[in-house]
Write a protein that binds this DNA or RNA. Structure first.
Lengths: 188, 188
DNA sequence: ATCCTAATTTAACATTTGTTAAATGCTTTT
DNA sequence: AAAAGCATTTAACAAATGTTAAATTAGGAT
């Protein structure tokens, strides 16, 4: 369990009692490469934090697989639109390599809110962080052309370029695989 | 003050005491067309809800004015990336027409959190809503070509097409004014 | 090692979007 | 009403991205 609680502490300080309560609902799990952590159609009832590995959230639109985002170590992974609405998600979560992660059941988490206000605030903050990252992503998609978006990804999540297959990266950037391959070729 | 408290109630139920406390920190203000509600460089310390009118959040990049989003009646308007970080915002808020709105000082709001847990949760929910809309916006920018994005805006915020000038709509969609004008011409 | 399959790159061409500049239309001011 | 200043549209061409298909490469399975 160890390194996840210190990570939480770095986001929002927790009382000793809250640390213990929270540690009590974190489960460690392992998932083999390419497997779905959560499938399309399921309602989001679990939050994940990667200990080791890499994951993506994806959806299928017009028969095409689209990667919405890539997530590395310690990133909060959740399908917020499903969690907040309590409705089935149109999105799935898949790991790109053999991964280890912590999972937290949201109803267990919610039941800690009454007694542990700091835990409620910690997760509010984690979602705020995710929200801000999403806003920045919009700026990126809205303002930059495909090639610039590629170089931004290269700068901000260089591991993704090494670990994710071309097709995932292309749909994440909002371009075709051929286009992405062309952009890469330019580099020389 | 009237209609804003019922709106809040529809998002998250509030005790009578909380309703009164919250009403006590809502201020009604009027702003003339084209004026900035908040300027670039200011730290976000106020939240707004439009009673009447329309607003946009914008930023300047490479000398170009880019509209990040349009906001209509009862929408929460805030520069989240600045609010959550406590840092100056690179974004401004401008009203597109003579507008009336409610403003809420964030430090006054925060001071209500301890005593009024329902208020804290109400605003957590409002930001969740905003977050989910942002996620959907990404799907839109990532997956759809310019013309489709235009038609989606037409469907989801038709008032924007009537009330906002071409240049704001174009940068919102991530295209040039000329391109937008061309898309419009196709319609016939 | 070899074969088989999937992933990536390359090529050729079509379509979309960007760029620059001019023409038209609309508002506001005088 | 005329003039001035913006906003929007149109046109012509350039650049970027999409599409289809073939060629190459890389990895896994036998």
């Amino acid at each position: 369990m160890s390194p996840i609680i210190p990570y939480f502490q770095s986001i929002y300080p927790l009382s000793t009692a809250s640390q213990e309560a929270l540690a009590g609902i974190c489960r460690e799990i392992s998932i083999p490469k390419n497997q779905d952590l959560q499938s399309i159609g399921q309602t989001c009832k679990t939050l994940y934090f990667l200990k080791k590995g890499m994951a993506r959230i994806y959806y299928v639109k017009d028969g095409m697989d689209v990667t919405e985002g890539f997530y590395g170590e310690f990133n909060l992974i959740a399908r917020a639109e499903s969690l907040f609405a309590g409705k089935p998600s149109q999105k799935g979560i898949q790991v790109l390599e053999d991964s280890e992660l912590w999972s937290i059941d949201t109803s267990a988490l919610t039941s800690l809110h009454e007694e542990h206000r700091d835990i409620e605030r910690l997760f509010a903050k984690l979602f705020q962080k995710a929200y801000v990252e999403t806003i920045q992503r919009i700026e990126n998609l809205q303002f930059h052309a495909a090639e610039e978006r590629y170089h931004l990804l290269e700068k901000e999540q260089p591991e993704v370029l090494k670990r994710a297959p071309l097709k995932f990266i292309a749909s994440y950037l909002g371009i075709t695989q051929v286009s992405l391959s062309r952009i890469r070729a330019k580099k020389s």
